[in-house]
Amino acid sequence: MSRAQERIGAWIGWAFFADLASALALTFGYMFSRSVTMQYPDKEKWLPYARYRGHHFLKRDQEGEIKCVACELCARICPCDCIEVIPYQDDKGNRRPAKFEIDMARCLFCGLCEDACPADAIALGQQYEFSSFSSRDLVIGRDNLLGKPGKAATGGGVVAARLNTEQDVLVETSEPHGYNWWRNIRQT
């Protein structure tokens, strides 16, 4: 097709609103495509990836003892100074933390404590729902940290969940694997 013909074709298309029609067709197609909304916290919840840095947790060794040796390296490296460790000697003669407190209100989730730890005792886990009405409640102690969920095993998906407001506001889920959220994204 010559350039003149192309130009005439473009003019005819312009006169009959070909551009507007193609726009309408596009939005019509989008209207019947899947919605990308994640219905959190009503129906769904995002499972983070294994690399996600959420709420800290303290690990135990095989005997069930806390791994932490209270070397205070995490407290040293912490850029916002939010970890406080006080060591003591337990009955086996090991150095263990008597007090291990993290002020979650100040933490910036950089993960440096995890990198610095020589005993592989502290890490940032998958939990991301720990908002509170009082910043005082965000100071988490040793026993609390031991009970926090660890790193995500699978992660990267949307699971069915339910908002529970009876005692505390909790988004509960029982599914271990989610569907891949990216499948809803329209590829054009």
Binding site: T27, Y30, M31, F32, S33, R34, S35, V36, T37, Q39, D42, R186
Partner: peptide, 14 residues
Amino acid sequence: KIAGHIQQRMGPMR
């Protein structure tokens, strides 16, 4: 609702 679905949202749901 139509606005939401055209923009790949859900619109009012709650």
